[in-house]
Nucleic acid binder design. Structure first.
Lengths: 121, 121
DNA sequence: AATACAGTTGAGCAGTTATTCAACTGTATT
DNA sequence: AATACAGTTGAATAACTGCTCAACTGTATT
C-alpha cells in the first residue's frame, strides 16, 4: 500500500483525468516529509516567533532583551522560545542568571529571505 | 514613533544589553512585512495545503483530481483552494463544469525546496 | 424538462494555540 | 539569611482553524 491511498477512500467523486492523477502521485514527495514541512511552516506561521528569529539573525540575545525589543512579557517570549527550541531552530546557553538564545540553524535565514522577497515584491 | 515600540510597554523587565537591543532594533525588517511573512507561512502550515501545492507544482488539476489524489472530499479541497487563492498562490480557469487550478507564483516552489531540504537532512 | 455531476458555500463542531496570570526555581547580591 | 531578579512552568481563557454535513449553483447530457 503506497502513500496517498488510505484504507478508507474519503473522496466523494470520480477521477476525471486518470493519467494526470497517476503521474502526479508517482512524483509526489514522501508524505511524511510533507507533514514535517507543514509542521516547520506552522512554527514560522506566528508573527512573534518570526520576529524572534529575525532578531536572532543579528545577535545572540537573552529573554529580557527580546521581551524589551518586542514589547512583550518575559513569559510569552519564554513560551515561544520553548517552541522554537523544540523545533531545533534555536539553542541556548546559561551564564549566571541570564539565558542567551541564538540560532541553531543557518537554513532558516535562507527560507525567510525567500519568503520576505515574496511578500515585499 | 518607530516600529517595535508600542504605546503601552507590555514588557515586565529591564533591558540588560541596551546597545545590543538598539542595534538589533535598527536593523529589523519592517514590522508589517514580518506580519505578512508570518501570514504566508501560516498558509503553508497545513499538510493538506502543502500537498495541494506540491501536486500543482507538477500539473494543472481540477478539484476532483486533487480530491482523488489526496483521498479527501471535494468540499474540503475546495475550502483549502479558496484559502490558497485568497493568498494569491493559485489561480483557476473554468472549462464547462470543470474548474482547473494551477500555481500563480513560481516563488513558492523555491521556498518549499528550501524547507524540504531542511526537514529531510 | 429532468437528471447528473463538478464545484461552492455557510454553519457547526472538535481540536489547537497564543497570551495572561500566578506560582515557582535558581543564581547573585547585600 | 534575606532580597532581587532572570527565567520557567502550568492552568485557564479566548480566538482561531480544518473538516463535515447539507444545501445550493451552474453546466452538460438525455
Amino acid at each position: 500500500m503506497g502513500t496517498y491511498t488510505g484504507d478508507i477512500d474519503r473522496c466523494d467523486c470520480h477521477t476525471i483525468h486518470e493519467t494526470v492523477v497517476n503521474d502526479v502521485r508517482d512524483h509526489m514527495p514522501n508524505e511524511d516529509d510533507l507533514i514535517d514541512l507543514a509542521d516547520l511552516f506552522k512554527v514560522f506561521g506566528d508573527s512573534t516567533r518570526v520576529k524572534i528569529l529575525c532578531a536572532l539573525f543579528q545577535a545572540e540575545m537573552c529573554v529580557c532583551d527580546i521581551a524589551v525589543l518586542l514589547g512583550m512579557t518575559k513569559s510569552s517570549i519564554s513560551h515561544q522560545l520553548r517552541v522554537l527550541k523544540q523545533s531545533k531552530l534555536v539553542k541556548n546557553r546559561k551564564d549566571g542568571k541570564v539565558v542567551y538564545y541564538s540560532l541553531a540553524d543557518d537554513h532558516v535565514k535562507t527560507i525567510f529571505d525567500q519568503g520576505l522577497a515574496h511578500v515585499t515584491e
